[in-house]
Design a protein around this nucleic acid. Sequence first.
DNA 1: CGGCCACTTGAAAACCTTCAACCTATGTGG
DNA 2: CCACATAGGTTGAAGGTTTTCAAGTGGCCG
Lengths: 226, 226
Amino acid sequence: MNSHDRNRSRNGAQSETDCAVCPGTRRCWGAEPLSADAVHARREPPLERGARLLEQGGTPAVYIVATGCLVLRMSLPDGSQRVVGLRLPGELVGLESYARGIQPYTAQAATASAVCRLRMPEPGTAAGHGTLLERLLLKSAAQPERAAAPWAGLPAIERVAAFIENYIERAQLTAREERFRLPLTRADIGSYLGLAPETVVRALGHLSQTQRLAVRGRTVSLGGTL
Amino acid sequence: MNSHDRNRSRNGAQSETDCAVCPGTRRCWGAEPLSADAVHARREPPLERGARLLEQGGTPAVYIVATGCLVLRMSLPDGSQRVVGLRLPGELVGLESYARGIQPYTAQAATASAVCRLRMPEPGTAAGHGTLLERLLLKSAAQPERAAAPWAGLPAIERVAAFIENYIERAQLTAREERFRLPLTRADIGSYLGLAPETVVRALGHLSQTQRLAVRGRTVSLGGTL
DNA sequence: CGGCCACTTGAAAACCTTCAACCTATGTGG
DNA sequence: CCACATAGGTTGAAGGTTTTCAAGTGGCCG
């Protein structure tokens, strides 16, 4: 059970590493220290902006975001395409494929990003993987969008405000800043919220004027300051 | 490892039982047989229509629905209340509380229902609970509403159609029928979808006229027949 | 410079909500 | 048994929000 010689981590990008000894372990797994050998992951080559990590319909694979931001897009049966989620550092991508055997959405880097691929147990061979599964379950259950979008039906201004505020809140879990640069276009935000891009523009204008948010271009912060 | 004398299941409602020996194990855990001692649960006293199982803000507890249907409601910070989900047999209720330490929503029986309370490991003591955690993770990841509401922004008719079709699909996983009685009022459906109750009425009328669904009162089925 | 893309703004049209009235089924008390 | 009350459901018309369409701006890159 010596975890030392399992980690060939010095050459970095290609080998599988014990998350417990990764310098960024707190960002991914939180303050509660991870026991040795509980979770193994492999750092993938960095993703440039626009690079695709997952294709809808592709084979199962689960990643955790290390840096950057991924957009999740889904093609609906009627042919239209919608943004269905955003993943920030410490969040999981592709977990659904573990249950369904297929990727339900496409994941694309919204900004330059880095991810680690998790070594998942074959379904049915869970013994000995309790810690990994518990961590994943906790992350998964903590996601706010678990019980349907509570903002559906709210006025556009409230939806946009909730989206931006939630983005800032999540971003602040791994970054100490006040201002953030939105990785999405107004059209993408609209696609996610079910609004026309023009409506997003007008809502942001309104929120900015009423000092609820500070918005200039893609830079946003809470309150009126910026 | 004899699971026999752990099950005092003949007196039914009060004792903890190994899910592997429960007559309804397939309904809850699917066709893949559950190994002995992997998941334990306790059948709770039956819930009458309207009875509350969980209160928003309450202490953590995770249940699986055996029969009936639960509605999940959430009070938003602005004081309004919204329906945020529906749970049918085999689905989990309250899993979010395991991660957050608090119940984010109220769960109320929409029809007479029965649930089993799952024995959850204390967070951090995952060793030996791999199978339970894996099963929960799979269920949790399989939920369709995981990546935000794909119907937001669609016309009202499409939202209502998607809701009814999804309800029928889920209900057919544990019931062999064609027609189902909706456990929700039009106002509740509207609350879930972010629509006014009148709009739900008109959408259902339209779907019925165009033969996409058959609707009479609360009884619904796919196609034009009923 | 020209082209492209994201963003912005204005006006008309479409859609949904709101409000009000009415209907139907169910249950209760006289 | 009926009168009545209640809750859910349905319908019509007015009003408000959002979408759509159209045009124009500004930054970035070949």
